[in-house]
Amino acid sequence: MDIGYYPGCTLHASSSLYDVQSRRIFNEVGINLKEIEDWNCCGATSAGKVDDFLAVAMPARNIGIAEADGFSEIVIPCSACYSRTLVVQKRLEDDPLLKNQINTELAKKIQGTIKVSSILEVLLTTVASGELAEKVSQKLKGLKPACYYGCMQTRFPYKVPVPDDVENPQGMETVLKVLGAQSLDWNYKTDCCGASAAVNDEEAALNLMTRIMKDAVARGANCFVVTCPMCQLNMDSYQDKICQKHEIKERLPVYFITEMVGLAMGVSVEELQIDRHFVDGSELLKELNII
């Protein structure tokens, strides 16, 4: 089955490992991720702070392209891109005048009927159909993941249908259960890591990350599992800094959900590029005899 795929800028740059992993694992369950043609930056949360029109126009063009390419569904692994695209689709549905205005300049016009899915939604369909379980060759026994959703998976600045529980989402837990890992209950699964504040307001961001780290450690987690490349980069690259400052001995690898699925399918660490993490991701897997 072919499905539209919007990687977004980050998956073509600093988090290209997430792109590699996504394509690889979906291929395994018979889903072919077809990258939409000539997509553009979604504007992330920045566009809304600079210009209201751009914040709509940027993701809108991508929706038009995906629809013109003939897809009925598009999957967007990056949480920020997913959130922006989903919100804009709903805004254009509610505001046909704005949609027409944007369509005047677009080579590929927006209909607005495509289904915008997060990576979890697509993974969960493979859980429901049993296809994912069939492909699991290596149970992830001993992993105690703190599933970290961050902001953009369940909270939106506009009324859109949210596919999971807003305050206590269970999508990642459901997927991990099929892979043989028992996720932990914890308090900070939908808290903010600070996102771009790590670069432009470091003090605020480090305080947020510290709270997340402390709770995960207190609950006995031995790793984080995430869907958002921003959460991954922040929790991974700043972990040493916050742990040194607050005298936390533990270091928790920050895995993408796609890495978990890949490992359970028997895909190698090298192929999944887990060696590109800041906090070593292989050590724990070896300790638990997963690799």
């Binding site: 800028c9 980050t10 073509h12 740059a13 600093s14 000539d38 997509w39 553009n40 930056c41 504007g43 992330a44 920045s46 566009a47 702070k49 600079v50 210009d51 751009l54 940027m58 771009s196 504040a197 670069v199 432009n200 307001d201």
Partner: peptide, 21 residues
């Protein structure tokens, strides 16, 4: 810095259509 960040981000995204980190 916050203001610069968002302005620069959007400018870069618009300039090339995709963000070059």
């Amino acid at each position: 810095k916050v203001a610069h960040f968002h302005d620069t981000f959007v400018n870069s995204g618009i300039r090339w259509g995709r963000l070059n980190e």
